[in-house]
């Protein structure tokens, strides 16, 4: 698309249109994760004891810390958007950078958790895991798939914020044109909401 045609298309759809588009995309993501939560719900109902036993392998405090980290990154992102809209470009850059760092920290901690479990032989189809009850086998299967796909979305979010960081630095995103940052923020917050549900389901199962 030529630049004038691109600008014409963006003007036609407006910031509100772009935002609507982003929300619609988030609805699709809700259903995508929803399929995983559906599987979790059914198996948790069926194998409550096994899920309880397996969840004991999780370190609740590490999970809680990771949760706090992601929540704080959402704060940083919300502040970054507010800062940009007030014209505080450098503050917004700082906050976007902080969001990326916290997101990366989240992934790092997650990787350590995964490595610890894999090191102990608790991964799908391992002899160690298959020796355990059905509930535990399914719990860990769901754990890796759900936190894995969630982690992938965190990574994608980090990349997107990297892009907005660059565009903000170059002045392409500004108080007059904050839309891309706002919509990226929506994506980041959505990823946070998914984790808000994943945390109790995998770390706090009683």
């Amino acid at each position: 698309m030529t630049q004038p045609a691109l600008e014409a298309a963006e003007a036609r759809i407006g910031a509100a249109g772009a935002k609507l588009g982003m929300w619609l995309f988030l609805f699709t993501e809700l259903l995508f994760f929803g399929g995983m939560f559906l599987l979790y719900a059914v198996y948790r109902g069926r194998y409550a004891a096994g899920f309880h036993a397996a969840a004991a392998e999780e370190n609740t405090y590490v999970g809680a810390f990771n949760t706090a980290l992601l929540l704080t990154s959402s704060l940083a992102m919300a502040l970054a958007v507010a800062a940009l809209r007030r014209g505080r470009r450098h503050l917004s850059l700082l906050l976007q950078g902080a969001t990326i760092l916290m997101g990366a920290g989240f992934l790092a901690i997650k990787s350590v958790e995964w490595a610890a479990k894999i090191g102990r032989g608790l991964y799908p189809d391992s002899t160690v895991l298959l020796a355990r009850s059905h509930g535990e086998v399914l719990f860990f299967g769901l754990y890796y798939v759900m936190t894995g796909i969630h982690g992938l979305h965190v990574l994608i979010g980090i990349c997107l914020i990297g892009v907005t960081l660059g565009l903000t630095a170059r002045g392409r995103l500004s108080a007059e044109q904050p839309t891309l940052l706002e919509n990226t923020g929506l994506f980041w917050h959505f990823v946070d909401v998914v984790w808000i549900y994943l945390f109790p389901l995998f770390y706090l199962v009683t």
Partner: peptide, 17 residues
């Protein structure tokens, strides 16, 4: 590839799901 067992009765999974 990984055999989580989601739909494998031998691992507690349910094909109807």
């Amino acid at each position: 590839f990984f055999g989580m067992g989601f739909f494998d009765p031998a691992k507690g999974g349910d094909p109807i799901l």
